[in-house]
């Protein structure tokens, strides 16, 4: 009986003690640290390059859309240093956002003109903001792109092979090029050839891939040709050749591009999208792309 009383006392004491306990030190949020967020893919396709510099942000609650203040960073010094020691300074520029729902239409980016990336060159980025700190990153562009092709006369298939040492990924696009007589003027018509056409008619176009070789089947090419010809009411369409456009991506650009698209893997069972960054002291990506084109005249 005494034992039962003791047990009861213990229970009541414990109950009282734990009724008072609280979760004061618990927070689902770690201390927020403001960091720079840098996005830039320098391209050999244009002479004007952009670097978008922003910052991380936090909100009072948990919904990031509570943040309506554009996280653009405008007070930074942004420069890219090349192999030969050249320093390219990027200037703060006003840009227009694609949609104005969250932050309004006016945005900022850093821009440099007369700057086109070259093959096999190192580029070092340094972003210094008096408010948000320093972010650094670097990459090396791949070697210049070489393009080879093979047309199989039996099957009608067209195969493209790209080479670009140092590249991790390629985007190989093929366009069937036609001319059409429009009121006496010969107009060029280029139709992208899909990688495949599904039974329901859905067209799957080439995407960035680690493979440097891409084949387009004769059936797909025939379908594209047939479509152009049947839609031609002037009866003047003439196929003049194939245009091959090859992009080569250095590893950082490739990695970020793929990860942000769910690994671009149609057979993966993963539903998560992890992060990739090569920015020291921040987030985002700094990478580069080369591009080359080859026109193959129809025989």
């Amino acid at each position: 009986m005494i034992c039962h009383r003791r047990l009861l006392v213990v229970i009541l004491s414990l109950s009282g003690f734990f009724l008072q306990s609280c979760d004061g030190d618990f927070s689902p949020k770690a201390p927020f640290e403001q960091k720079l967020v840098v996005f830039s893919l320098l391209s050999a396709a244009q002479d004007t390059q952009y670097i978008q510099v922003a910052r991380t942000y936090d909100v009072e609650g948990f919904d990031p859309f509570q943040n309506r203040k554009a996280p653009d960073v405008t007070d930074a010094e942004v420069k890219v240093i090349t192999d030969d020691g050249s320093v390219i300074l990027f200037q703060d520029t006003a840009i227009q956002r694609e949609n104005d729902e969250r932050y309004g239409i006016d945005g900022h980016a850093f821009m440099a003109s007369q700057f086109r990336v070259l093959p096999r060159t190192n580029y070092q980025l340094e972003v210094t903001s008096p408010t948000y700190g320093v972010a650094r990153a670097s990459f090396q562009t791949p070697n210049a792109i070489g393009i080879g092709h093979l047309a199989d006369r039996n099957t009608g298939a067209f195969t493209v092979r790209a080479t670009s040492f140092g590249a991790k990924g390629f985007l190989i696009r093929l366009y069937a090029v036609f001319t059409q007589d429009q009121d006496g003027n010969l107009v060029e018509l280029a139709v992208e050839v899909p990688r495949s056409i599904l039974n329901d008619g859905t067209r799957i176009y080439p995407d960035v891939d680690r493979l440097s070789i891409r084949s387009f089947s004769g059936d797909v090419l025939a379908a594209v040709r047939g479509e152009v010809i049947t839609s031609d009411t002037t009866d003047s369409v003439e196929e003049i050749g194939m245009r091959i456009i090859v992009w080569s991506l250095e590893p950082n650009a490739y990695n970020y591009y793929q990860v942000s698209r769910g690994f671009n893997d149609r057979f993966s069972v993963r539903v998560d999208v992890p992060d990739f960054t090569n920015i020291e002291g921040g987030f985002g990506v700094f990478g580069g792309l080369l591009v080359d084109t080859l026109f193959v005249r129809a025989l």
Binding site: T56, Y57, D58, G284
Partner: peptide, 14 residues
């Protein structure tokens, strides 16, 4: 824990 947010680009249209 969560440690804030940043707006991540997809590079659509690159």
């Amino acid at each position: 824990q969560s440690a804030g947010f940043y707006d991540r680009l997809q590079f659509t249209g690159v």
